[in-house]
């Protein structure tokens, strides 16, 4: 089992780095080539969400991304925002995304969740075991 951990200051500029690392580790772990676009998008969305929460709450703490390949490729993205912000975030039904009256922020959040749910078959959003925060856990099969 190999584990790669990355933690980054909650700034948008670092989300791309997290995507690049996440895809590199996925490729190395043996995730099928045709899934890598989805891995890139999902890790990006999870990190974007974490960065947005940290900024919303003025938290300087780093966002943690942990990738491991024990049997499958599992990625955890951990934020440190108060739990009520993370759990139960409005997973808007697709039809609602076309609703003209949605604020841009609500729309972007809804679209982000639609993408996570649409691209990741094995997706969990749950409170972290230690302290305050939420963990988005995504798992992909490896081709070996």
């Amino acid at each position: 089992m190999a584990t790669v951990r990355l933690s980054f200051s909650p700034a948008p500029v670092h989300v791309r780095t997290a995507r690049l690392v996440g895809v590199a580790v996925a490729r190395r772990a043996g995730v099928r080539e045709d899934l890598l676009d989805e891995v890139r998008l999902a890790i990006g969305e999870a990190c974007t969400r974490a960065v947005a929460l940290h900024r919303q709450y003025g938290l300087p703490d780093p966002v943690l991304v942990e990738m491991s390949d024990s049997g499958s490729y599992a990625v955890r993205v951990v934020d440190r925002a108060p739990i009520e912000a993370g759990i139960g975030l409005a997973a808007l039904p697709p039809d609602a995304l076309a609703n003209e009256s949605l604020t841009d922020e609500a729309l972007t959040t809804g679209v982000g969740f639609a993408l996570l749910a649409g691209f990741v078959e094995d997706l969990q959003v749950r409170p972290v075991d230690d302290g305050v925060g939420t963990e988005v856990r995504m798992v992909w099969p490896v081709g070996r």
Binding site: R19, R40, L41, G44, E45, T48, E100, D104, E105, L107, T108, T109, V111, G112, L115
Partner: peptide, 16 residues
Amino acid sequence: DFLDSTGLGVLVGALK
């Protein structure tokens, strides 16, 4: 090469 929810939100904003 890559488009995420933030980009989609910007496009919807322009459409509106």
